[in-house]
Amino acid sequence: MISLILATAIRYLLPLLLLLSVYILLRGHNAPGGGFIGGLVASSAFALFALAHGVDLSKRVLRIAPRNLITAGLFTAGSSGCVPLFFNLPFMTGLWFETHINVIGKLGTPFFFDLGVFLVVLGVTLMIIFSLMEE
């Protein structure tokens, strides 16, 4: 019974929660939030989905293997730090685009770094939960 409710609810909740997580990620630079919390919210969405519909289906919905999410996240975070090196600035120096974008504020390398954090947290959590659930 509970699982039925959950199964139905999560179908609608999943996109909402993912949206929320992206929002938390985006606003993190200016208000409480950020990559960590965003990633955790997103992964809890998938975790709930997996509880209701099984690991296989959630893997299919997710499309990308968690390990690749981790790799992508590490890559994003690492390379965002490397960008300033090409401008002869130290590692991880923040570089910003001049244009102001709504919600996010200014876009710059620290944002991509936070995006990397988001991806890693999402990937890690899902990798742990999926492999525990698969047993």
Binding site: H29, N30, G34, P110, F113, D114
Partner: peptide
């Protein structure tokens, strides 16, 4: 300089980004 109002987050991704990495 770091373009963020949430100081904790700015520290995490910018001032002390290496920790976060």
């Amino acid at each position: 300089l770091a373009k963020g109002r949430n100081i904790v987050n700015v520290i995490l991704v910018d001032f002390r980004g290496l920790d976060t990495l």
